[in-house]
Amino acid sequence: MKLTLHIWRQRSTSEKGRMVSYEMADANEHMSFLEMLDVLNEQLIGRGDDPVAFDHDCREGICGSCGFMINGIAHGPRSGTTICQLHMRHFKNGDELWLEPWRATAFPIVKDLAVNRSAFDRIIQAGGYITTPTGNAIDGNAIAIPKEDSERAMDAAACIGCGACVAACPNASASLFTGAKISHLGLLPQGQPERNGRALRMVQIAQEETFGNCTNIGECEAVCPKNISLEVIARMNRDFLRGSFLWRSGSGGDGG
């Protein structure tokens, strides 16, 4: 299979980037997309060129490292699939593909297709946890959790933090990511004591990190490789509103 690849090349955060075209003659349908890029990189190194930088690690769709745009779609054409699990059988001989990094002010480009997503970490640091220091937990079966609640929490907790939602959103909103964590913890009894403050702080930090607001476009859900539902954004908004009324700073508890 022969392909033409147009790839965004940018040496560092501060330098200007540009699209560079490559002919890829040695792709085959069993390769994953990243394996196809490995082959390209081996060729580039062989001829003394700089290989294309892209983040990747587990290559089984769970670590969330990989991700870039293929022809304008985050993670490429197959729904519910990260780029590392996208196989070349979904492309055909002669295809022309444009590869670009996630584009958002909050995700500065590191090099080529690799971006800095540490803003996501700071959103979690603002409240994406349950305060429970090691060592004082009660028995795991002491709180019964309805199966449906646990399943729904798991649906939201499946987020891999890849950033596709931000890249796909015209507002570069991190609402799907933030809402997923707020929903995961908010659906469980263990997450109730900090529910209000958590939503307030996480949403506020997302704004400070220059992510945009949600305007219900739904592109995020369409590209999410873990099929996180837009419903988590509704839950985020509800918890944010609830928190705005009930949470008192310095009250010691979480109000409500």
């Binding site: 937990a137 795991g140 709180i143 646990s150 399943e151 997450g191």
Partner: peptide, 22 residues
């Protein structure tokens, strides 16, 4: 045995039976 308790407390959504137990 302590690990599972700690993880439940952190909000790890382990699989549950219909009655709500692990």
């Amino acid at each position: 045995v302590n690990i599972v308790d700690q993880c439940v407390a952190q909000g790890v959504p382990f699989a549950r039976e219909y009655g709500g137990t692990l």
